[in-house]
Design a protein around this nucleic acid. Structure first.
Lengths: 220, 220
DNA sequence: GTCTATATGTTGATAGAC
DNA sequence: GTCTATCAACATATAGAC
């Protein structure tokens, strides 16, 4: 198989309790190798324990993969959902989603790639995602994501302050522009001839340029 | 491991020569399972041959993976690059990239997920991508992607017909909006409560709404 | 809880008959 | 070219000593 270059070890504090260390190590390994490519032995090595211990705490690779997937969901969605469900004005929602999401992704560079790959390889994970999200039903989740936002957009369209757009497209376009660059990070860096620092700087800029672009598109 | 639901067999014509049948089967399997998750036996089964034959034609999984990756690149990039490098006016470039890319992705639903996962898991593939692209150098590729486009954008900004934007951001924003929905397709479908037909219909609509949105964002 | 040793099953790959 | 049979290398998982 292709040997990956991403071998930087992100060490978990050695004084953390063992279960946490293992979960952190699993998180790191699953993120960059994917579930199918991850090895229990590599997780053990990265956690600094014998690989039998990994099974002692999590029984099987499957359970460990589930735990990591749940944690990844918890990192990716809650902030965005909170902002979109809030009563903040539309312009502020756009700016806050972009800033918060980019901040989070700068610290978790593998997260979008991991989540998208996981969902493509195991589509039934989409169910798991809907159900394990903050203990609400899928319908409830949709209401939180698109309900308040839809009302705001309706009103803004009537007032003539925004062009009409469905809340689903609003969210999809915004999330696309924020997340895609991270999901395709190695591709973007290669094509544009960037190093890590340059990419990071570009994404910092985009905290401002994405909202500007996005809001300009919706100006009547 | 999680059992995937994507078990629909896309059969390659049985009269095609064996090597082609194997490559087609490999393409299908690598696309939906990823390189690490793909099994030589599954490829053989899908090609309707004994799995020893797969090794006879391609020697190793690695070589087969490389062949599939090259083919995937050839499907994803050339059309878009051709449009962006052309002399067509800016508005037309936007519309043509959106339409052509969405058409292609409707037929290759796993392509973006596969490419992004592959590049995240094996970052050195980004090199392979740059080199194996239409036999040009990376610098040449960049010129084709951003050269003509940059000139057009400069001129449009001077004329006051477009707001100023760097060609890199222009392409990144456009590609994000076109590709992300496909890369995150299972997620988008789950959150929005869509079935396959609804998703397809939405993306057909987006051939028009993405260019409209995008061009509105650049109107001064 | 943590280790060593080992069982069990899969997978990529090859040898050799046809 | 295509198949059957088989190998060697891992990877997941468990048993059992400490």
């Amino acid at each position: 198989m292709v040997k990956t270059a991403a071998d930087e070890i992100v060490q978990t504090p050695l004084d953390a309790d063992t279960e946490t260390r293992i979960l952190d190590a699993a998180h790191a390994v699953f993120m960059r190798r994917g579930t199918a490519g991850a090895r229990m032995t590599e997780i053990a090595r990265e956690a600094g324990v014998n690989h039998a211990l990994v099974h002692y705490y999590f029984r099987s690779k499957q359970r460990l993969a589930d735990a990591v997937f749940r944690r990844a969901i918890g990192e990716f969605f809650p902030v965005m959902i909170g902002v979109l469900a809030s009563d903040a004005p539309l312009e502020e929602k756009v700016r806050r989603v972009a800033a918060a999401q980019i901040d989070m992704l700068q610290k978790n560079r593998y997260l979008p790639g991991y989540l998208l790959a996981e969902l493509n390889h195991y589509p039934e994970r989409a169910e798991q995602l809907l159900n394990s999200m903050s203990g609400t039903t899928p319908a409830n989740l949709r209401a939180r994501l698109f309900g308040t936002l839809g009302t705001q957009l309706d009103e803004a369209a009537r007032n003539g302050t925004f062009r009409a757009i469905r809340p689903q497209e609003f969210v999809l376009n915004l999330v696309s522009m924020v997340v895609y660059a991270f999901a395709a990070r190695p591709l973007v860096m290669a094509i544009m001839g960037m190093d890590d620092a340059t990419f990071t700087a570009m994404m910092e800029e985009r905290k401002a340029t994405i909202p500007a672009f996005f809001l300009a598109a919706l100006r009547p």
